[in-house]
Amino acid sequence: MGAALAQNLARRGFRLGLVARRAEELARVAAEINASDGTQAFIYPHDVRNYDAIPVLFQSIVRQLGGLDLIVYAAGIMPQVAPNEYDFEKDKDILEVNLLGAIAWLNQAAVRFDRAQAGHIVAISSVAGDRGRSGNPAYCTSKAALNTYLESLRNRLGRKGVAVTTLKPGPIDTPMTQGKPVAGRVTSIDQATAQIVAAIDRRANEAYIPQQWKFIMYVIRRIPSVIFQRLNI
């Protein structure tokens, strides 16, 4: 999703810094972006769990870009978890990538945007954060916690001209969902990207991707716990 979003933003004149672990994959995406005129992407191989490296890396990226208008946290993992599996190492990993990495990166952005009295923070959470489903407790937890963190940021920074957007995708056709059982229809990456960009443009507080999930989750959030336990979602 991050890669597709980068392509889209590059076409709209953004100068980009791309962060992920796999250098070759980053180089491939950047090369595609840089192949067209007037678009520009730089790459920074990095594991978001390497927290200590973040302040320096953040500063050098921003310096290379010449400033910062928008940060999108799209890193996330969702390993397969069996219904009776309680593997702490796996869970810890999920929380580190989906939540702690987000806090480490977005705190940096928050300080800067606070001082600048401008800026936009976006993070990809998930519909999974709206309820504690049986399938993947740590994943749901990571996204629920991320939602709360983003809401707090919004309440801190909103009055200072900084927008904070929580994106909540349903199942999207990306490597993450490949070969995994998913609940509901899978949305294409193009459609998801278009809706993400639209949400960024209108500086939405929160957006479900695609929008239909807003109504579905409205209902699901209201199902009483006693009933939710018996449902297979």
């Binding site: 991050g2 890669a3 980068a6 791309l18 520009q40 910062l68 799209a74």
Partner: peptide, 14 residues
């Protein structure tokens, strides 16, 4: 992958 970005790209060679 996370993208962090700056609007109004300058058209320098890269």
């Amino acid at each position: 992958m996370s993208a962090i970005s700056q609007k109004d790209a300058v058209s320098s060679v890269h």
